[in-house]
Amino acid sequence: MIELENVTKVYRMGRVQVPALQGVSLSVQQGEMLSIMGPSGSGKSTLMNVLGCLDVPTSGRYVLQGAEVGRLGDDRLAEIRNRKIGFVFQTYNLLPRLTALANVELPLLYGNGHDARKRALGALERVGLGHRARHRPAELSGGEQQRVGIARALVKNPSILLADEPTGNLDSRSSYEILVILQRLNREEGLTVVIVTHEADIAAHTKRVVSMRDGRVVRDEPVKEPRQAASDGQGMERGQ
């Protein structure tokens, strides 16, 4: 469902041109769960932005579900983000003024918004937070906030869920809960999940690891026995 062909991305910082991606080819099938690893500056975040249609490649082709999206304008990209992509951020990026429910409703405002309340509540229930719908982010724990973030990513039933360091700001127990949810969504609903992380332990919970360095894919191999996260938080070890 995702085809990247020789994608490059060059940022211009003043007069200096910084190459962030230098010819990345990648193919992701429907229902996969993979992680993108690499040290900072390896281009994994840039790759994530391109995959999420937040940015367009400088050259190369990006085909998402059979449609070339690498050359689209801002508003068409916004539409694709709204319809096909769910984002989960390291810093949650919830709007602090809004309740959990209103935060989850947000993507529904920018598209087909019928039954917004009902669908948002359904998404919150899928991450086990139906009872926290009226709380504001500040009244929720980090793990709960990230689950609201996942509910928001799910509410439009996207084709792909992109998680950028989703556990980066969480303790191991909460990280674990997040992994449980992501694995379940992948296993039970066949949702395609892409996780950007620099933690090998997180990557070990996915079925495939793509390693990057200096804007190139240096390794791309399946995980032989992906670990299964259990809701009691055991079997989770922090560290590289």
Binding site: N93, L95, Y110
Partner: peptide, 13 residues
């Protein structure tokens, strides 16, 4: 940041 979030969620210009 709010604008960024809204745009990531599909808000058009």
């Amino acid at each position: 940041r709010e604008i960024g979030i809204r745009k990531a969620m599909g808000a058009k210009r």
